[in-house]
Design a binder for these strands. Structure first.
Length: 804
RNA sequence: GGGCGGUUAGCUCAGUUGGGAGAGCACCAGCUCGACAAGCUGGGGGUCACUGGUUCGAGCCCAGUACCGCCCACCA
């Protein structure tokens, strides 16, 4: 064993060994209590990023502890086909050849996607392995696998037959590049500098007109009304009159609608139902026509008259010029506002009216809300629970169709008469008229529609499988905040609807790791830190430790120090193992405590076991690793190992055997967080048959717990060691030396002890002061007062022991 | 505009029913003694963002202010 622990090579070797020996595998027939995490499937085109790494570190720590505790543990891996993201990647690839997907046609494009995925996709599981994630990789699923597609079709048909899926013409977000609708959640908003144009719409009869403000003059030909707030006195006499829309010269009414903001612009809003979500609503309320003047390609269409074919920018300029010539342009001012972009291609989103498939939330959300309110699913932290409930309560109907070519094609067939046949597989004839001339719906489903099924489709649903019976429902899901509405809530209602039970009971909303400068980590900003670089430099164990350490609050700046701390911990563990192993040749681990320090370290190990279990039960990973760090560095290495050194050198068998036993317990506690270095050390221990990964988690041990109490309940090692006489200070330089163990009567006075006495005197003075305060004694809870009395007595005893 | 979170040492962050202001890194000093110099020992360093309140006592509880961040939102 080298004095410097080098994780490279060691970690890969154990990862391969564990997997080859089948130690990651879950088997339904094994029986016993289960612990299941269906890990969020990364995009099939994805690369490991900090979010994945953190998520894996959190989940794998739990999985490994549960595995050691004897649970039948399933950690489910797999990939999401990520419709628009994958299609976008392949289209970019095609663009390099100067082609678009239309040059290939749908079938050939789909084949191209599969080929592309064969070459470049599915790489992230290798990276998952490299961080030590103990997923059952044999069970890798893909949302486009035949079985999974069958599940998606079954789900769609199920919802359709319940009457919760319908088709409707509504305003949607349209990406002109991908030529598809997008949900609100697939957009990003950015601030842009634009112009706000004040244009006057003259009255049809009489002088003057109404001036509106618009940032999108190109939509003017789609105007069907001008709207003002009903209480707006400025326009009291105008409502009901007609005005002329510039350029297209359409006569439209002035209407009153409460949604108009009187504060904005002139307080008058041009109403364009075809190209604005708010206007669409107003239009429907007032039963206005819904002309569209912008086509799916983002350019002006035939409805726009002589502007047809122009870009919106060109059309807007033409219209503004037209108004200016006629004195209808009051002013133009610069205007900064946010616009919606497609999150994949950053094209500007066009709101337009389109026929889409929708999923009603009305009935689906009811049982899910009930489950959340009854805490059958708990969000952590608790504040996210309220957000989840609010989001679900207010969830609008869900646009589930996308005009993409990569995804699950909607299982709907049309006959020439327009009848609709819905089935899991291609029907032979129209269900209504028997026509065999059927054409399948071209749209595919929103990717999240299939992601919803992840917790049970990966287990074999719609078939009734042993896996499904044993491993559903699962236990928890870990995810980022922004995924709550996209995925978590939808998994909950899908699980309840299909399986009759929630898919998991806890949702851990994890920390967002920001760049060191506080900005979001992002490829485009160049602020990202590659977890694989961290693993290469410091090892997977150190990276896991660092990420867990950072996981305390809602957002945290990435800290190299936390990862380096993990590396130091691994190295420390490695070296203290060398000390013990070098002095315990031929000795078997045995708990045979002879001295105070041995009883003390066993008690500390026991206390830390309890702390760690409590911390992890509360998903407080940062505290768990902090406990482990203190235990290893402060207690085990700095105090215990130093204290037993002399006896180890003297070949004291009890001391060596106990040290081995203590080390075993330490390794077990650390394994969930730092699996590789602990397994490596474990393999060097005498008489080890089973791997550490499947060894038994330490059982609570009353002896040690009682000892900790007997040691005065004080966890301060210095106080205990000083009293036991193990701790001696050399005169003069204040060095702490253990090499000469002396009896209590030989404990020498020194600077440290004086400092300790001083500390105790201060404590005693404080406690005395409080207890002398009548109002404190009268008003404070009894146990607090009693606690102070106990402390006072204890401090006095300690001070006496130090000869103060 | 709404929601959530943050402000504690030079940096990243702990601080669990209100009673000692802490860790790691960085810095300074001293140590190669048979685990570890990626180490050990010791040390310096903070007006706990600000204002007010409650309390015998506030980093912690309450009200407000300022700044930072994230998420969400149909301001044309």
């Amino acid at each position: 064993m080298e004095p410097l622990y080098k994780p490279e090579g060691v970690e890969e070797r154990w990862q391969e060994t564990w997997e080859a020996e089948g130690l990651y595998e879950a088997h339904a027939e094994r029986g016993g209590e289960t612990f299941v995490i269906a890990h969020p499937p990364p995009n099939v085109t994805g690369e490991l990023h900090m979010g994945h790494a953190l998520q894996l570190a959190l989940a794998d720590t739990l999985v490994r502890m549960k595995r050691m505790q004897g649970f039948n543990t399933l950690f489910q891996p797999g990939y999401d086909h990520a419709g628009i993201s994958t299609q976008n990647a392949v289209e970019k690839d095609l663009a390099k050849e100067g082609k678009t997907r239309h040059d290939l046609g749908r079938e050939a494009f789909e084949a191209r996607v599969w080929e592309w995925l064969r070459l470049y996709g599915r790489t992230i599981m290798t990276q998952f392995r490299r961080i030590g994630a103990s997923l059952d990789y044999r069970r890798e699923r893909f949302t486009m696998d035949d079985d999974y597609v069958r599940a998606v079709m079954r789900f769609f048909v199920h919802l359709y037959r319940k009457g919760w899926i319908y088709r409707d013409n509504r305003i949607i977000n349209w990406c002109p590049f991908h030529e598809t609708s997008l949900s609100d959640l697939e957009l990003v908003h950015v601030e842009v500098d634009d112009a706000l144009s004040y244009v006057t719409y003259p009255f049809v009869d009489g002088e003057g007109g109404v001036t509106i403000a618009t940032a999108r003059p190109a939509t003017i030909p789609g105007d069907v009304a001008v709207a003002v707030h009903p209480d707006d006195q400025r326009y009291r006499d105008v409502v009901g009159r007609e005005v002329v829309v510039p350029h297209i010269e359409r006569h439209v009414p002035v209407i009153a609608d409460g949604e108009v903001d009187p504060e904005f612009g002139t307080g008058a809003l041009k109403v364009t139902p075809g190209h604005d979500p708010l206007d669409f609503e107003i239009g429907r309320r007032h039963e206005l026509p819904e002309p569209m003047v912008i086509g799916p390609d983002g350019r002006m269409n035939a409805e726009a008259g002589d502007l047809a074919g122009l870009t919106q920018e060109e059309a807007g300029e033409r219209i503004i010029a037209w108004a200016k010539e006629r004195g209808l342009l009051e002013k133009r001012e610069s205007y900064r506002h946010s616009v919606a972009l497609c999150e994949r291609c950053e094209s500007r989103i066009e709101p337009l009216i389109s026929e889409q498939w929708w999923c009603s939330m009305e009935e689906l959300k009811k049982p899910a809300l009930e489950a959340l309110r009854e805490r059958r699913v708990r969000y952590h932290p608790e504040s996210q629970h309220r957000f989840a409930v609010d989001s679900l309560e207010n969830a609008p109907d869900w646009n589930i169709s996308r005009q993409l070519w990569w995804g699950h094609q909607i299982p709907v067939w049309y006959c020439p008469d327009g009848h609709i046949t819905v089935d899991e597989t291609e029907p032979e004839a129209c269900a209504e008229c028997g026509s065999i001339d059927l054409r399948r719906e071209q749209d595919v489903l929103d990717t999240w529609f299939s992601s919803n099924l992840w917790p049970f489709a990966t287990l074999g649903w719609p078939d009734d499988t042993p896996d499904l019976r044993v491993f559903y429902p699962g236990d928890l899901n870990t995810t980022a905040r922004e995924i709550i509405r996209l995925w978590e809530n939808r998994m909950i209602f899908s699980g309840l609807e299909i399986m009759g039970d929630v898919p998991f009971h806890d949702v851990v909303i994890h920390t967002t790791v920001m760049a060191p400068d506080g900005r979001r980590m992002s490829k485009s900003l160049g602020t990202g830190i590659d977890p694989l670089d961290l693993i290469a430099e410091h090892g997977a164990d150190a990276t896991r430790y660092g990420l867990l350490k950072m996981s305390s609050s809602q957002d945290v700046r990435f800290s190299h120090g936390a990862v380096e701390e993990g590396r130091k911990l691994a190295n420390k563990l490695w070296n203290v193992s060398r000390l013990i192993l070098a002095n315990a040749e031929g000795i078997e681990p045995r708990v045979a405590p002879q001295e105070t320090e041995e009883r003390w370290i066993l008690a500390r190990l026991e206390a830390t076991r309890a702390e760690m279990e409590a911390d992890l039960a509360a998903f407080d990973f940062a505290h768990a690793v902090q406990s482990l760090y203190r235990l290893t560095f402060d207690d085990f290495c700095d105090w215990y190992a130093e204290a037993i050194k002399p006896r180890l050198y003297e070949k004291d068998e009890d001391a060596a055997a106990t040290a081995l036993a203590a080390l075993e317990r330490l390794l077990r506690l650390l394994h969930p967080v730092m699996p590789h270095v602990t397994e490596e050390i474990w393999s060097n221990l005498p008489g080890r048959e089973a791997r550490l990964i499947v060894s038994q988690w330490p059982e609570p041990d009353e002896r040690f717990a009682a000892d900790l109490g007997a040691l005065d309940g004080v966890q301060d090692a210095a106080a205990i060691f000083r009293r036991s006489g193990v701790l001696v200070d050399l005169e003069g330089d204040g060095q702490r030396i253990f090499s000469a163990v002396v009896k209590p009567e030989r404990v020498q006075a020194n600077g440290n002890e004086e400092a300790e006495r001083e500390r105790l005197r201060k404590e005693i003075a404080r406690a005395e002061g409080m207890l002398a305060n009548e109002r404190f004694v009268a008003n404070a809870p009894e146990d607090v007062v009693a606690g102070e009395r106990e402390k006072l007595e204890r401090y006095r005893r300690e001070l006496d022991a130090l000869g103060g």
